[in-house]
Design a protein around this nucleic acid. Sequence first.
DNA 1: GGGCCGATTGTT
DNA 2: ACAATCGGCCCG
Length: 199
Amino acid sequence: MVDLRSVVDLSRTYQQDFYCRDTLAVARELLGALLCRQVSDGRVLYGPIVEVEAYTQDDPACHASRGLTPRCRVMFGPPGRAYVYFIYGMYHCLNVVTEPEGTPGAVLIRAVGADGTNGPGKLCREWQIDWSHNGTSLLTPGTDLWICAGTTVSGSDIVCSPRIGVSSATDRHWRFYLRGHPSVSKAPQPPVGKKRRRA
DNA sequence: GGGCCGATTGTT
DNA sequence: ACAATCGGCCCG
């Protein structure tokens, strides 16, 4: 039996000051951090975060861009909590809340370096993350869900791109991922062989 | 109350 | 290219 403490340094669980910052900075620094989840039977699942996306108040793609609604309420609350939403009638997605209370912001966790955890919908399905986690704190190690500092990631290993499935603000390259990691989503292929209209 | 759309995924 | 599947949000 592996002692979890030999793999995950619980004392390095990120606290509110880590999340209470610029969303883009938090997004980049979450790469390599260990997402940890204790499921209902007591098993602890964990893995390094390898793909994230940032969403901020002034961003048209952000749920909070048109003000506070029941769904996005926790994005306006204290940093360091989970923001979970339901999408396409079948998937939950996990975000971490950033920025000072009153300023909405979040980082979508798109993939973790563990089996079956590529893609935000599959991650939540595999790790049993759902509505019950919306608004819960990420600051207490050994509870439901928490995040520990992991291995330091070099800036040259981080790739930026437009966000997946977002049709607006495509000039904001706010998706960050670890170069070459197998769990990272494959970006949708641009149309090929399409005839270009001649002038 | 109606209707449309979506921070996805897997199949055709 | 599209279906599955349903909550959120805007409009009236």
